[in-house]
Amino acid sequence: MTDNLCIALVQCELVWEQPAENRKHLLHLLDDLASETDLVVFPEMFATGFSMQVEKCAEAMDGESVQWMKRLAADRRLVVAGSLMIREHGNFFNRFIFVYPEGKMEYYDKRHLFSMGEEHLHFTGGQTRKLIQIKSFRILPQVCYDLRFPVFSRNRQDYDLLINTANWPAPRRGAWKTLLKARAIENQSYVVGINRIGRDANGINYVGDTCFVDPKGKVMVAAEDKKEQIITAKLSKDSLERFRNNFRVLPDADDFQLT
């Protein structure tokens, strides 16, 4: 029997530029996390909110937030994931980090920087399309704005789950919901979207819309609007493979090269 993957998504408020407060709050929210969870995912820039104050707020890969993720992964015996503002070799990255219970780390640097929010003026965009393996699931990690670019998301028959961690504003929630479903349908993949709630220091409102979408574009589980909560789902690799075998779309996709 092929592995199932049990995922928990944390929809929460974020305290602006206060990593210690955010880490403390997330630990409190995780008190009731199910013991069978394989992976827990936090929103984009979960330690700071979507701040551009890189000199003030960015941490190194051996900084306290990453160390906290390592301790949490080891203590709970699961994979912990979320994006952080990272300083490395004189550059700053919006880095989606996955930490395994044994201490191994993998990460993806956000490729599509949100120029309308001046993210491109403060951060360096990632250049590598990264795949993460958890159990039998091949995972394509993305960060927020990446969701709008279908060529970058195109399934080359090399992933089973797309995970997007975001700070996606309330006025564009319709696009968020539509694009999550579109990415699932066109790529015959599970899609997971994790978003924050509340209001940030720039006056931007977030309502959440955190959800799981199945490969047919149907929402499996969705969080309530404007509510802090953890939603969970168990994804079936067997069901995914049966669907792909019975409705063989991916082998007919166009070939292309992404530069």
Results as ranks from 00 to 15, higher is better:
Met61Phe: 11
Trp168Ala: 01
Arg183Ala: 15
Phe149Glu: 15
Arg172Asn: 10
Phe137Asn: 05
Phe123Asn: 02
Ser189Asp: 00
Leu162Pro: 04
Asp109His: 06
Arg111Asp: 10
Arg77Lys: 15
Glu228Asn: 03
Ala166Gln: 09
Met69Trp: 01
Arg244Trp: 01
Leu26Thr: 09
Ile197His: 01
Pro43Gly: 01
Phe93Arg: 04
Cys12Gly: 10
Asn167Thr: 11
Leu78Ile: 10
Ala34Pro: 09
Ser51Thr: 15
Met85Phe: 07
Leu84Cys: 08
Leu84Asn: 06
Ile134Pro: 04
Trp68Lys: 00
His120Gly: 15
Leu72Glu: 06
Asn187Leu: 05
Thr2Glu: 14
Lys70Met: 11
Val191Phe: 07
Leu162Ser: 13
Val213Gly: 02
Ala253Cys: 11
Asp75Phe: 08
Leu235Trp: 04
Ala74Trp: 06
Ile86Trp: 07
Lys135Gln: 03
Ala60His: 14
Ile134Phe: 08
Asp38Ser: 03
Arg242Ser: 10
Tyr190Asp: 01
Asp31Asn: 15
Ser65Lys: 02
Phe114Gln: 10
Val219Cys: 03
Arg248Lys: 13
Val54Lys: 01
Val151Met: 14
Tyr190Pro: 06
Leu180Asp: 08
Thr48Asn: 10
Arg196Asp: 08
Asp214Gly: 03
His89Ala: 15
Gly82Asp: 06
His28Thr: 15
Ile139Arg: 06
Ala74Met: 08
Glu44Thr: 08
Arg95Ala: 02
Gln142Tyr: 13
Asn4Cys: 12
Leu39Met: 01
Asn22Gly: 05
Gln133Leu: 12
Pro171Met: 04
Ala73Trp: 01
Ser236Thr: 02
Asn22Asp: 05
Lys130Phe: 07
Arg111Gln: 15
Gly126Val: 00
Asn94Phe: 03
Met105His: 00
Cys6Asn: 14
Asn202Gln: 15
Gly117Pro: 02
Met220Lys: 05
Met69Arg: 03
Thr37Val: 13
Ile231Gly: 07
Gly103Trp: 00
Asp31Tyr: 12
Arg23Ser: 09
Gly198Tyr: 00
Asp160Ser: 07
Val54Gln: 02
Arg129Pro: 05
Val54Leu: 00
Lys130Arg: 14
Pro141Tyr: 05
Asp62Ser: 12
Glu44Gln: 13
Asn245Lys: 15
Asp160Pro: 00
Asn4His: 13
Thr232Arg: 14
Lys226Phe: 10
Arg248Asp: 14
Asn91Cys: 14
Phe212Trp: 00
Val249Ala: 10
Leu240Tyr: 02
Leu240Gly: 07
Trp168Thr: 05
Gly117Met: 14
Met105Leu: 11
